[in-house]
């Protein structure tokens, strides 16, 4: 964020830490380009319009989830429940909309409200029940939400949604999926929120030092509740896009999304220690994961190996974070 602020105050002389932060952005973008080039060389189908729009629409769901995950990680926390929240909120939408014929717009609102509500519960477990780490609360939520999602239709998927629900996930504006515009809008709003509003700064502050934030008069609990609510909300929003794309809600939907989102955020340079990261780099992280998955698909790599590859990438990305912390500490001494 700081480098964006610096950019905003253009004309100032270049300073010591500026290059370091920009270097990471450049590094992430270069990695994406490099990875894409490798895929393009290995598979002639990679650089086709069809494939790229496919990557984009798949990445859209992940990008929306990663937005909320980014916030959670920015506060030094994590949200393991996003995949399950996605499943439960879309299953409930399916039940009311398809099985009970409730108005589709109202159903979508319900979906978002359920997502936000489950996220708020995650936050309250942290702030009111003082559970030691969101790893615990969101892992519990992950299992509970998934359980309920399976129970409500006895594990059966719900399909054939009305047109308004399918609109975002299934339609194109020219060659571009509508979902891309939603992602662009969401990230633009999030960027403004994080860099230009007091609340956005408080999220960074809380992630950087909770006690100092509290003593500075920041209502830390309120910030954390908001962050987890937003994370649940974006998971539900991603769910609507996913349902629209496949025209069905599955109780087991979104299982890989938790780890993909975490991987994307960390690859995007957000620190697991909290307080550091930029939303702009997060989208690059999302694209790296999407290209990696797509490329491995094109190369007919078994999905089990893909899981392995993503796992390795997560560990590598966090390790890079650790190394960066060390370098910063050395720089500080």
């Amino acid at each position: 964020m700081a480098h964006e602020r610096e950019a905003a105050a253009a004309g100032q002389e270049a300073k010591k830490q500026k290059p370091r932060k920009n270097m990471y952005s450049v590094g992430v973008i270069l990695s994406l380009i490099l990875l894409s080039l490798v895929m393009a060389v290995l598979s002639p189908r990679f650089l086709t319009v069809d494939n790229l729009t496919n990557v984009a629409s798949q990445a859209a769901v992940s990008a929306i989830i990663s937005c909320g995950m980014f916030l959670a990680i920015l506060t030094g926390g994590i949200d393991l429940s996003v995949g399950s929240v996605l499943a439960l909120s879309t299953m409930l939408m399916g039940v009311v909309c398809v099985n009970h014929g409730v108005d589709p717009y109202l159903s979508m609102l319900l979906c978002l409200a359920v997502g936000g509500g489950l996220g708020l519960l995650n936050g309250l477990m942290l702030t009111k029940m003082s559970l030691p780490h969101p790893f615990i609360s969101t892992m519990g939520m992950k299992m509970m939400a998934r359980g309920v999602a399976l129970v409500i239709t006895a594990a059966a998927p719900i399909s054939i949604f009305p047109e308004p629900v399918q609109f975002i996930g299934n339609n194109y504006l020219g060659p571009l999926p509508i979902s891309l515009f939603l992602v662009a809008l969401l990230y633009a709003c999030m960027y403004l929120f994080l860099t230009r509003t007091a609340t956005g700064r408080y999220i960074y502050a809380v992630g950087g030092n909770k006690e100092a934030s509290r003593l500075s008069g920041i209502k830390v609990h309120r910030v954390l509740n908001l962050v987890y609510t937003l994370s649940g909300f974006t998971a539900a929003l991603a769910g609507i896009v996913l349902v629209g794309r496949v025209n069905a809600a599955y109780p087991l939907a979104g299982q890989d999304y938790d780890s993909d989102a975490i991987a994307a955020v960390i690859i995007g340079g957000a620190s697991f220690f909290g307080g550091v990261g930029s939303i702009g780099n997060t989208i690059i992280g999302v694209l790296i994961i999407a290209v990696l998955r797509n490329g491995l698909n094109l190369l007919n790599v078994d999905s089990n190996y893909q899981t392995f590859a993503i796992g390795a990438v997560i560990i590598l990305a966090v390790y890079i974070d650790v190394l960066r912390q060390k370098v910063m500490q050395v720089g500080r001494r």
Binding site: A2, G208, N209, E211, S216, G217, G275, M328
Partner: peptide, 24 residues
């Protein structure tokens, strides 16, 4: 370091943190 400042943030971030809403 533990309670007064957010060490990973800038001088302007830290010094404007209290009552930030005022500058909106």
């Amino acid at each position: 370091k533990g309670q007064g400042l957010i060490l990973i943030k800038s001088v302007s971030f830290n010094s404007s943190l209290v009552r930030l809403e005022r500058y909106s």
